[in-house]
Computed example of a mutant assay.
Amino acid sequence: MHDEALRPGERARDVGDPYRYGVYLRPDPRTCLAVTTITTQLRAQYGFVSAGAFPPHATLVGSQHLGRDEDAVVTALDAALEGRPGFDVHNRGVRPSGVGFVYDVHHRADGSPNAEFVDLAAAVDAAVAPLRLPMNSPQVHGFDRAGFLAHLSLASHDLYERPDLHDEVGEFVTGLDVAVPQGFRGRTVTLYRTASSDWSGRWWRSLVCEHVATWTLD
């Protein structure tokens, strides 16, 4: 058996397409409500869909190409998370981040990085690293301790297409004045299967997320 020749401009398909996997820290229900309130309003006002395409979450590792053996992924995470304690997460409120806006949950109330959050992301990345497969798109999202920034996305990839709306969207999000807890206990880790018809392009326009498993720390 041989692979069919690719047409000009066509990318090679990856084993396991169209699936990618994400491991997330889920906030408390009230914070989830605040996130979805904002993303729903951004969709209604501007047609933005990227942040709202996902369940409310802080990414530990995202867009992982792990094939289709979900039992192996769950087993690896079972081992990594067993006996691991939860930790306190502080929400510093809406902040600009990259092209968009997020709730900053990376820093403690005193402004220092939350080392327990970073350690959890490192442990999750180490657990799935042996299962990671090469992929053509999107880019591999490996863990970088220095670059890791825990956040809850409110407005994201849509602003790559509409950078002219950046300041207006920031004012809109702030003006919504959505009530949100100042923090929560970080204790719920989730695994999601994601699929898109075009990982090489505007994948968020066709993204589908399916829950696979949940772990409770503490």
Rank of each mutant, 00 (worst) to 15 (best):
V99R: 12
T36P: 01
H157M: 11
D218K: 01
L25D: 04
L42S: 12
R193W: 08
F87R: 02
G183L: 03
R84M: 11
L152Y: 12
R84S: 04
A51K: 07
D125E: 08
Y19G: 00
R132F: 01
G93I: 01
A44E: 14
N91I: 03
G62I: 12
G86V: 03
T174V: 15
G16D: 04
D125K: 02
W199G: 07
H107I: 00
D3Q: 15
D14P: 10
D78F: 11
Q182T: 15
M1T: 15
G147T: 00
F101Q: 03
D71Y: 06
G47L: 11
G83C: 04
F48Y: 14
H106Y: 06
P134V: 09
V35H: 14
T59V: 04
Y192P: 02
M1I: 07
T31M: 15
E168Y: 08
Y192D: 11
T190Q: 10
R30L: 13
L191F: 07
P130W: 09
L154N: 05
V173A: 04
V173M: 06
H107G: 03
D164G: 15
F101L: 06
G22H: 14
V169E: 00
A53H: 06
E171L: 13
T216P: 00
Y19I: 02
Q41M: 13
D167I: 05
H157W: 11
S200Q: 13
V49R: 10
A146N: 08
